[in-house]
Amino acid sequence: MRVKLNQVPQNKSNSIKFISIVEKYSSKFVKIEVLEKENINNPNPAEMIAAGTINVLAMGYRGVEMWRKNRIPLSIKEEKKDDEKKD
């Protein structure tokens, strides 16, 4: 069975605060919670994705490409939040 690294917490509210700590590298993205499934030659992609993106990235270039394809830029995410507030 594929080993899981420490689980991603369900509560993501700290992500934005945390990104401000690492602003030195100008983080521009937050990541979506569930990545699209792809035939990536992995025994259990769903489990791997649930365990966190580090597991996806550990797959090498396929993981990096899949991760990049599925992440949402922070600006869009924040716009969505603003829209939700307005509604």
Binding site: V8, P9, I19
Partner: peptide, 24 residues
């Protein structure tokens, strides 16, 4: 193209290394 910059990474990766991230 396949290079990964530290600026691309964030919470979702770090939490695997620091689950007690709320204490940071």
């Amino acid at each position: 193209e396949l290079r990964v910059h530290p600026g691309e990474l964030g919470m979702e990766q770090l939490v695997s290394f620091i689950p007690n991230y709320e204490l940071l």
